[in-house]
Write a protein that binds this DNA or RNA. Sequence first.
DNA 1: TGTACATCAGTGAACGCGCGTTCACTGATGTAC
DNA 2: TGTACATCAGTGAACGCGCGTTCACTGATGTAC
Lengths: 221, 221
Amino acid sequence: MKRSKADTAETRRRIVHVAAQEFRQKGIHQTGVAEIMASAGLTHGAFYRHFESKDQLVAEATAEGMDVVVDNAETAAETSDSAYYTHLKSFLSREYHEDALKSCPLVTLGSELARADTETRRAASQGFLELIDIISKQDGRRDTKAVKDDALFRLSAMIGAVTMARIVDDTALSDRILREARKRLAMPPTPLPSMKKIAAKNAKKVAAKTAAPKARLARQA
Amino acid sequence: MKRSKADTAETRRRIVHVAAQEFRQKGIHQTGVAEIMASAGLTHGAFYRHFESKDQLVAEATAEGMDVVVDNAETAAETSDSAYYTHLKSFLSREYHEDALKSCPLVTLGSELARADTETRRAASQGFLELIDIISKQDGRRDTKAVKDDALFRLSAMIGAVTMARIVDDTALSDRILREARKRLAMPPTPLPSMKKIAAKNAKKVAAKTAAPKARLARQA
DNA sequence: TGTACATCAGTGAACGCGCGTTCACTGATGTAC
DNA sequence: TGTACATCAGTGAACGCGCGTTCACTGATGTAC
């Protein structure tokens, strides 16, 4: 039977929302249309009243997933600097990406997105760029190329760290990967003055330890 | 008809090799057993004379894929420091991971590996740890926890950068992500003396630009 | 405002297809004597 | 070393299954008068 326009729109939204969760949980190709429709409380036949194909749903679900990640980051960034870095710390945790409502598609669907169609990759790219903007702005500097470049590296590194933490079969190793990423990325790119002193001390220590490789490289050059 | 033991072993190796290529190219779930067998010059029925299941092949193909990546890195590291850093630069390129014979499963199958069975994840983890060893040794320092931690971060960041470069739908952005990763990762973790001077200069520039955010953070603390 | 009708969201059966897996059969290989 | 037989790699048809997609049908909604 026909439904009201409001109901129809709400149903469509619900399908996209449920799909976004299930794709991130089980992967795009391991999640069937019928399964998603059942989770949305419908039979699979109604699917094509809302979408042209599964691919279209994949694109919209990816966009929705990225929007959630972007919104969460934006909210944290707008709250306070410490809220932002706390958010980054929680993003760099396994639990965050096991939460179907939060997890970042770039992490949970990474290699599948690289093979997805144009619309899906566009959605993923746009979300990525929005995150880059938030990171760049948070750094509080002018929108120079160098600041963007830095954000590009930092975000890619975060995605790689969580991806690896999820692949690895040893919980201790997984935690260690994330801890190292948090140490390096869940803080301002340029350390505070007080931290600079500590960093300088560490640099001396490291320099002493790296005398050998430096000498090797010098010989080679 | 029955084949000689040597032939049988060679056929098995060929199936694993072909599978490793195809999985990395098209993804695990998008590549069928029949397709792999055809590429190996056989019909699909013979598959179960060599493997118990597709999952077993996935595990072995992942192991083979990681072995190739490890061997390439090891060879470069054993040749010379410059060969090693040149190898890192080429690893941080899109072409490298579009090459079915070289590409790293951690990149091309990342999110699928995170959902794979125990054996497959074990193979991926072991390969990852072997790469960490190579990177740690290359740094030429003692095998301290800090050196390993650094390698953990650097390798995760590499994997994230290439993963993102492959997802993103804009070639220029893709190149930029990789360029930044190369700048930061395809060189020794502690720069050479000559490079240190340049780094110091840059640090001053950046410090000037970041006066604002540092002030903000100070206020907050 | 009330009536008559077109629209279309949702149902559930059915479509063709490709998947992973099994199996009877073939015939060269490896083994036991 | 030669013969007889068991083994088993490979073939190709077939299995059940779940996939994405289509469709005839239902009946409430929205619209035209």
